[in-house]
């Protein structure tokens, strides 16, 4: 059932001639595959801001959400640590102004705090088909390239091993007063990202970066699904 719903989201995007899903759509697909994502609401109109803010609770993150936006930070389309209704309304206006040439909306989400950022992804290898990636997230993904792969489908053993395989795997331990990461949930995310790749042929790539450890719990904070 969830698979059908996910496919519907993707075919709508394909029919609209798009090659990517927006962050909001991407996370809907992920949630359908039992992958924990930030609580969030897509806002089209400024009158919705107050109710949504109350529902999610401060502090908030507000982002421009459009399939056409890839690098939100560089375009001033991301506002973090929004703490009052005035700030939220102000952020809404700025984002909408920044999006003026594009078809978009404002995505309001909980602000997940955690010092540890991971990356999880999916790519299609010419020879081995969908392969799931795990590694250090945020800026370290590009700087250190500390990543591991497994060909889908993944067993739980594969998931646990690929986490241990990166050089920085100790980031998952209970270090410096932080809780050990919940590897049960992380395994589930890795396995299910692989399932998306196997079950939905139109998905070309998935990029979950960052996946933030909020205490022990991993939450997908930003997500991009690229279509074929």
């Amino acid at each position: 059932m969830n698979k059908e719903s996910a496919i519907r989201i993707i075919s709508n995007a394909l029919q609209a001639g798009r090659k990517t899903l927006s962050e909001f759509e991407s996370k809907q697909v992920l949630a359908l595959y039992d992958i924990p994502v930030t609580r969030e609401i897509l806002l089209m109109d400024k009158t919705e801001v107050q109710k949504a803010a109350q529902e999610i609770g401060y502090p908030l993150v507000m982002k421009g959400c459009s399939a056409a936006v890839a690098h939100k930070t560089e375009k001033g389309l991301i506002h973090v640590d929004v703490r009052t209704i005035e700030e939220a309304r102000n952020a809404f206006d700025k984002i909408m102004a920044g999006l003026k040439c594009m078809d978009g909306a404002v995505l309001m989400q909980e602000m997940v705090s955690g010092k540890r950022e991971l990356v999880i992804g999916l790519s299609r290898d010419e020879q081995f088909g969908p392969c799931v990636m795990f590694g250090l997230g945020g800026i370290f993904t590009e700087i250190l390239r500390d990543i591991s792969f497994r060909k889908a489908p993944l067993t739980k053993n594969d998931a646990l091993k690929m986490m241990r395989e990166i050089k920085g795997h100790k980031i998952l331990y209970d270090i410096r007063g932080m809780e050990a990461a919940d590897t049960e949930i992380l395994s589930r995310i890795l396995i299910n990202v692989g399932r998306i790749g196997l079950e939905i042929g139109d998905v070309q790539e998935i990029d979950l970066n960052p996946v933030i450890l909020s205490g022990a719990k991993p939450i997908v904070v930003d997500a991009l699904i690229v279509l074929k």
Partner: peptide, 15 residues
């Protein structure tokens, strides 16, 4: 024939 990428190959062999 196709060669393939190093990291994917290494991962698959480990797997």
């Amino acid at each position: 024939s196709l060669g393939g990428s190093r990291i994917i190959w290494q991962s698959v062999l480990r797997q």
